[in-house]
Amino acid sequence: MTVAVIQFGGSNCDRDSVQALEEIGVEAELVWHEDGLPEDVDGVMLPGGFSYGDYLRAGAMAGRSPIMEEVKTAAEDGTPVLGVCNGAQIGCESSLTPGAFTTNESARFQCEHVYLRVENADTPWTRAYDEGEVIELPIAHGEGRYEIADDRLEELEADDRVLFTYCDADGTVTPEANPNGSKHAVAGITGDRGDHVAVMMPHPERVALADLGHTQGQGVLEGFET
C-alpha cells in the first residue's frame, strides 16, 4: 500500500501526513499535483493547508484541477481517498463528497481541540473506534461549517454516512460543542462512491506520532491499511 499525499500550491499538512502514515507502517509519497497521480498508488490523501490561497472558496480551485479527475477515477475503482481540512474542502468542491464546507459561524479562523463522537464505526476510517466513542482531535480552519440541503443531510444520516459529529467530552452533541456551526454538527462524511472515500475537517494526522504523546488520530489513517 503506497498512499499518494497530493501537494497543491499552499498545502501545508502534506509532510505531516506522510510522517503520520509512515508512523503506522503505511508507505506514503508526496505527489505534486501537476505531476499527476502515479499509476502504482493504492491510496490518496488530500492534506490540509490553503491551496490556491483559499481564493474564491477554500478548495474551489484545487477541486477542479486536472489531478482531481484522476483521483475521482481512482475512487470509482475503489482506491481509498481521505481528505482532511483543506483536503475535505477540496473533496466537497470536486464532488467526491456531498455538501460544502463554508465560513465558520464565528466568521473567524479557529484553531482548537474538539471532541468528536464516532457516528459510524463500520467504515475503514473509523473501524479502530467504537460507535459512540469520543475522540479528541484538533481543528484549524476558517471555512469548516458543513452546509447542505436539509433533505440531503437527512438522507446521508439515514444511510450512515456521517463519520463524526462535534460533541462535548461526554459525547453529547450540543450547540456549544459545535465549533463552527456545522449543520447537525457534522465533522466528517463518506463519499457518494462508497465509504472508502471520506472527508473530515479535524486533523487526525496531528495526533498520530507517539513521540508527541498522543496517537488517537492513528485510527483514521489506518483506513489506508488493507
Binding site: 477542479r64 468542491e93 455538501g99 447542505i148 440541503a149
Partner: peptide
C-alpha cells in the same frame, strides 16, 4: 456553473 458558484450553497 463550473467554478464561480458552488451549487450547494
Amino acid at each position: 456553473e463550473r467554478l464561480l458558484a458552488n451549487p450547494t450553497i
